[in-house]
């Protein structure tokens, strides 16, 4: 008797997408948590590189500094801070789910809206305060 072991036939998680799930905007939010999580990891590596450049002295830092002030450097930092604020707000939503709060469909959709709005407000606030101060 030869039966296929479960290990060979077990599906991995993305198989549900498209085939079985109707698209909902909350799935986009959920996907966004993973995308921002990965993006933040790379961004944190850039933060470490920036600190290494600083620790290497004036000359090395001087080579890096213009990129920070360039439009693409500023845009990247703005995007990274937004990704972090999005992941933070949605992370809080996740932590509430972990203690069993907020699973009702209406609540989940509403908290999703708060996450998007909250992340925009926090990001804009951080940069606006910086510009004014």
């Amino acid at each position: 008797m030869t039966t296929k072991t479960p290990a060979q036939s077990r599906p991995l998680s993305p198989f549900m997408l498209g085939q079985y799930y109707r698209f909902q905007w909350t799935s986009l939010l959920s996907f966004g948590h993973r995308i921002t999580g990965i993006g933040l990891t790379f961004g944190t590596a850039l933060v470490a590189l920036w600190l290494i450049a600083l620790a290497s002295g004036v000359d090395t830092y001087g080579a890096v500094a213009p990129h920070l002030k360039a439009w693409y450097g500023q845009a990247l930092m703005f995007a990274w801070t937004w990704a972090l604020m999005y992941h933070l707000c949605n992370g809080i939503r996740h932590l509430f789910w972990d203690i069993g709060v907020g699973f009702e469909l209406k609540t989940a959709q509403r908290s999703g809206t708060f996450v998007v709005l909250g992340s925009i407000v926090l990001t804009v606030a951080a940069w606006a305060v910086a510009y004014i101060a």
């Binding site: 600083l54 500094a65 002030k69 604020m85 933070l88 951080a126 910086a130």
Partner: peptide
Amino acid sequence: LALIPLSLWFVFSLARLATGPADF
């Protein structure tokens, strides 16, 4: 949980630095 205050602090600090001279 620990990253909530730390990330808020870092984002506000980074924006502050990036809009300043950001020199060595």
